[in-house]
Nucleic acid binder design. Structure first.
Lengths: 235, 235
DNA sequence: GCACTCTTTCGATAAGTCATTGAAACCGTA
DNA sequence: TACGGTTTCAATGACTTATCGAAAGAGTGC
């Protein structure tokens, strides 16, 4: 019986009332919070509930995280995958439509894959701009990148004439809206369409819709999608 | 001095500590709440703040409204203008693209004109389905109406082949997303584009984008817009 | 002037939230 | 066995929504 224990239950510090003991409390808190945030949403989840889920008292939560917002921040994947995609494709001769599709697809996939509703995160981030400076900054850079791509597409004739700034806002509104609808069942409680079952499907819907709304020749959207997915697979 | 008082200050019931006296406290509460919800958002506004704004004590709020959600509900315009538009155009020979544009335009205009963020309202409504049954029901009917229009458009050849259910979700995601971005400054704190200054502009952006993403021939969107706005002006 | 009702407001209070603080409990080690 | 480091807890504060009974006025009939 000299095996390494399956449950190390490392015992440092005062033991818990519940008797439980995790090997990595911080991670366990993140896991539980992640689960609960998905189930009930950020605002409706209390620190007491998260604490109980990992066998801790409410006040002990604040040993591992300074605040509830801190917990949220730790769950928010800071660096947007979509930004990396945008920067990787920036200098290349990949058509603007393909670039836009790839960026939007990556954006939606990441948002849907995470445990947080984008709008929840946005609300808290806007209330604490210093704490979430990195995330807010990333958002601005993503918007600027999309704006550049749209402008390039208009110049090359791929996209119909449009206000690039407005088009970028519309693209992001689309991705964020689809993300929300992916995460939250429709208000009328109708079942979620099968095509919104997984993050990739949601990403396809949002990217296809947004790119199609800009294309001069919408028939090309299938081709654009194919090439964009190929680009994304290059990682 | 027998003039009707400019400020009736009707005096029924125990006088207020503040000395103030409104002629229609319920309406004054709604006005103050409306203003504060726009400024700080629903969640961040406390009943105490609303009470103070109208010169009442916190607990007196509950004489006029059963709860904070009740206050929200009173501010949420129950019947969606967009639904009336959809029903009015339903049987006519107005092209599907025009119908869709008109419905989405009306939807966004109403959402942006109101004082509540759609997502705030949705969150509360989902937590209290019985109380907000009417609103949730309206949402379902709107979605169904959009689905019908999309289906008709695909049949007539105006729209490219699409899953009507999914397309409807994408349309609503677009309108809701644009509404949110109209209401809340972009997270990166960049100034709001001039074209998002008023509800009608936001409505045009969302409707144009959504309809264009469906049209077989996107060049027709200008014409569709013209006809749709003409239809809306018929009221 | 005096009860009586009706409307409206208030103060006190309950229960639940996030967050802080100082003490307590356990480990390893000198 | 005393001491420092780590982790937990109980107690508590400030703030929130919400409830309750009492209180303060107007109007009415007498």
């Amino acid at each position: 019986m000299t095996e390494s224990p399956a449950v190390p239950t490392r015992s440092v510090g005062r033991p818990r009332r519940t008797g439980t003991a995790g090997q990595d409390p911080r991670q366990e808190i993140l896991d539980a919070a992640s689960r609960l945030f998905v189930e009930r949403g950020y605002a409706a989840t209390t620190m007491t509930e998260v604490a109980r889920a990992v066998g801790l008292g409410q006040s002990s939560m604040y040993y591992w995280f300074r605040s509830k917002e801190d917990l949220l921040k730790a769950l928010a994947s800071a660096n947007r995958e979509s930004l990396e995609v945008a920067e990787r494709l920036a200098g290349t001769d990949v058509p603007a439509a393909v670039q836009l599709y790839a960026v939007l697809h990556a954006d939606v996939r990441q948002m849907c894959g995470g445990t947080l509703d984008f709008y929840d995160l946005e609300r808290v981030a806007r209330a604490q701009p210093e704490t979430f400076a990195e995330i807010l900054d990333d958002y601005g850079r993503l918007r600027a990148a999309i704006e550049r791509i749209v402008r390039a597409g208009v110049d090359s004739g791929e996209f119909a004439l449009a206000d690039a700034r407005l088009a970028a806002v519309a693209c992001l509104a689309q991705t964020e809206g689809v993300q929300h609808r992916f995460r939250v069942p429709t208000p009328d409680a109708a079942e979620r369409p099968a095509a919104l079952e997984d993050p990739s499907s949601a990403a396809r819907l949002a990217a296809t819709t947004a790119v199609r709304s800009l294309l001069t020749d919408p028939a090309q959207v299938a081709d654009v999608e194919r090439r964009a997915l190929a680009e994304l697979a290059k990682d």
